[in-house]
């Protein structure tokens, strides 16, 4: 995953692959963080919305 191994050579493949991978992972991470933080905020605020289905 990281260029730690001794025979590592950077090439375009790595940029494309890791670019796409981290892009996707970032979206998931940010999305999830948003949901959790917002829920925590809402809980702390004592909001009583968000029941049932969207």
């Amino acid at each position: 995953m990281f260029p730690f191994s001794f025979e590592w050579v950077w090439d375009l493949g790595h940029l494309v692959f890791h670019g796409a991978l981290w892009y996707a992972l970032s979206i998931l991470g940010i999305g999830l963080a948003y949901c959790i933080l917002k829920a925590a905020w809402q809980t702390a605020r004592g909001e009583e919305e968000g029941h049932g289905h969207p």
């Binding site: 948003y34 917002k38 829920a39 925590a40 809402q42 809980t43 969207p54």
Partner: peptide
């Protein structure tokens, strides 16, 4: 409550 909010937000 937290779960309720979380589920709602994720939806």
């Amino acid at each position: 409550t937290f779960f309720r909010h979380l589920a709602h937000n994720m939806h």
